[in-house]
Design a protein around this nucleic acid. Structure first.
Lengths: 220, 220
DNA sequence: CGCGGTTTTGACCTGAGTCAAGCCGGGTGG
DNA sequence: CCACCCGGCTTGACTCAGGTCAAAACCGCG
């Protein structure tokens, strides 16, 4: 497959879009913290690209248990479906701007094949992440999951200057992503701090990875 | 995307392949129980389709913990990679026959676009399964994981006549897929049997789903 | 009928969950 | 400018689902 896994061409702060020969007015939308972008079961008429901010896609069991499938950062594509409806809900984590693409756009392989290829690449990347996540959820301890998650996030958020990354999501979100409880996440993070592997800002939302080697060792 | 999620055109016992205009001699290969089809880290020169039998793709942590990513049944495509190497190993569960496709075949969008589309569809399906699996691993109890797994397998193995499906894999494999231990799998299966939700053959490898409603309720 | 691998069962242990307070920081209004 | 609130984070004490270790039991097979 000719899919290039190079960094997504529309990274972080690139709201402008090059779009084939015919100018498609791409709809750009904004959402406030916690707002729903689409719900589980909605008709999948669009798929999206994050322009700025962070999006979480998640599913909720009837009894309230929640699993956050993934966090999508600036440049990431999400909401692509094989069937006709969204199998996950999507919500803004903090302030978010996204571009909505009409799903049918994917049908035309002509002209805008570039977008189609990008989507294919994004899908493959999503699959790779999902597989990584399965490893975490299936076989790793709480401590290992946190270490792995932080490293992964650090890789993806290039912006964070000098090893310090700002976590856009709450502890609860992290817990629901890693299959843990808030308390466990809190305890593990604190423990990693005590052990000197990471350092936390006073508001506890910025993390500096002080000992990547040790973290990577935990990541296994 | 024009991907049709209809049942894969080359299902179960269909070794013959229709392949565009130029006849490509597709390599068909056989493997015995436990044999390795490719290893984690191998150059990804081929991807595969299961002709008969079951394949497991898995990853092993340095300390020996194993996570089985997925089981691939007849008709399934596996081993498609975004990068240049396989990020999972693949092994035969019992006797297996597969067709190996040269990876470059995907490059030509011409002629054989059909295969390319099939791969795209397979990728999307794999992603959907991975997401289902994350839900299981992240938020479900042992009992629920087993129920969910059995239902899923029953759906995919149409062959199993009248609700009775033969599990091709060992308890250990199931455990490593569901993030449990052999003992837990065994206990849960036995419990489901005692509770009358399932019935087991004397060799404990065939399962009849006696109360799908209850199982589905567990699946949530 | 004995053998070897898989599955099951039992007794015990522990990592993470649960429940219940505190704590801290940031935002508001007096 | 500061006292107060409120939601998210942390901490502590206790519980429990599932893991661990060890031993049968079972099935299929030669």
């Amino acid at each position: 497959m000719q899919i290039a896994l190079a960094p997504a061409p529309y990274a972080s702060g690139t709201p402008s879009l090059r779009i084939g020969t015919t100018p498609h007015p791409e709809t750009q939308r904004s959402f406030g913290a916690g707002e729903e972008i689409f719900a589980e079961g909605d008709r999948a008429r669009f798929f999206y690209r994050v322009v700025s901010g962070t999006v979480r896609t998640c599913r909720i069991l009837p009894d309230g248990r929640r699993q956050i499938d993934a966090f999508h950062l600036a440049g990431d594509i999400f909401g692509v479906e094989a069937g006709t409806e969204h199998r996950f809900g999507a919500e803004a984590v903090g302030e978010v701007r996204v571009i909505a693409y009409r799903r049918e756009r994917m049908l035309l392989t002509g002209d805008d094949g570039a977008l189609a290829q990008e989507v294919a690449a994004a899908t493959l990347r999503a699959l790779a992440r999902a597989q990584e996540q399965m490893m975490r959820l299936g076989r790793k301890s709480a401590r290992e999951r946190i270490a792995s998650f932080l490293l992964d996030l650090a890789d993806r958020m290039t912006d964070g200057m000098a090893g310090s990354l700002r976590l856009p999501m709450s502890r609860t979100d992290i817990a629901d992503h890693l299959g843990l409880t808030v308390e466990s996440v809190s305890r593990c993070v604190t423990q990693l701090e005590r052990d000197g592997l990471i350092a936390l800002s006073p508001d506890r939302h910025s993390v500096r990875l002080r000992d990547r080697a040790a973290l990577r060792h935990l990541d296994a």
